[in-house]
């Protein structure tokens, strides 16, 4: 009995549509979120992540509706992130059917939000999303906000250590340098975060070849998140699982489809 590596398609949602760009700009329309969630669920996704990148309140209401419709028909864990600022925001999303929520900017502005959410709903609902890039900080990695456009003035590794103390249950580590490039995950960044944390770690940003997924696991990731390689048909989830299984990693297979 072994815990399987998780393959997690990420759906960036705005105004009820899935979009995907390169380095968080040049957004392309990629499809209907509920349909895509159901498709990825059927293809063997181990979890799904929605990132709500809409700025407007009508967009947020639409996202809640997408979460409800998805949770009603896809019976795998669903993480929702984007624009979450309060315990009440978390409550709304959990009630709509999210299993986990991810926070980023709001936690940087007010780190106590991490402990407030963890104390109310438990650490296991709380994913810390870290958008980081290489820079001249203590560790060589810094945190960015607003989709990588702004520096947060924080060393990424110090931030991860602090957030773990405050009670996050999982880390979603997104390399802003690699995001959307399909040039490979930032292996050095994954190793550095793994070294200071004892919660599950999701690698994100840069997945391209099948070897990239294995390299992230070897660096200490427990789960692999990708968007564009799935949306634009570069790899199917089953291709990645077959490859990882051949390489000796434990993956989830189901005889039930």
């Amino acid at each position: 009995m072994t815990l399987s590596v998780r393959i997690i398609p990420c759906l960036d949602v705005t105004e009820g549509r899935v979009v995907k760009g390169v380095n968080f700009t040049n957004l392309l329309d990629a499809g209907d979120p509920v349909e895509m969630a159901a498709l990825y669920g059927a293809e063997g996704a181990d979890e799904l992540t929605f990132l709500d990148i809409s700025a407007s309140s009508s967009g947020r209401e639409t996202t809640l509706d997408v979460v409800r419709k998805t949770a009603d028909q896809v019976f795998i864990p669903l993480t929702v992130g984007g624009g979450i600022r309060s315990v009440n925001d978390v409550n709304q999303l959990l009630r709509a059917g999210a299993d986990k929520i991810s926070i980023n900017t709001a936690a940087i502005k007010r780190p106590e939000l991490i402990s407030e959410i963890a104390e109310t709903f438990g650490s296991q609902v709380l994913v810390l999303s870290v958008d980081a890039r290489r820079a001249r900080t203590n560790s060589g990695f810094e945190v960015t906000t607003h989709g990588g456009r702004e520096r947060a003035g924080l060393d990424a590794i110090e931030w991860v250590e602090r957030a773990c103390e405050l009670g996050v249950g999982e880390i979603l580590l997104n390399s802003m340098d690699a995001d959307g490039t399909r040039a490979g995950y930032d292996i050095g960044m994954i190793s550095a975060v793994r070294a200071v944390s004892s919660v599950p770690l999701i690698a994100s940003g840069g997945a391209g070849t099948l070897q990239d997924f294995a390299a992230a696991l070897d660096a200490g990731a427990n789960a692999l998140l990708a968007a564009s390689v799935f949306h634009f048909g570069v790899h199917r989830i089953s291709d990645i699982k077959t490859y990882l299984s051949e390489q000796g990693y434990s993956i989830r297979e189901s005889a039930l489809g």
């Binding site: 009995m1 650490s123 999982e170 599950p200 427990n222 789960a223």
Partner: peptide
Amino acid sequence: AEILPHMGWNTVR
């Protein structure tokens, strides 16, 4: 266990 929570898909006996 070194990494907690135990999070994800596991087989059962």
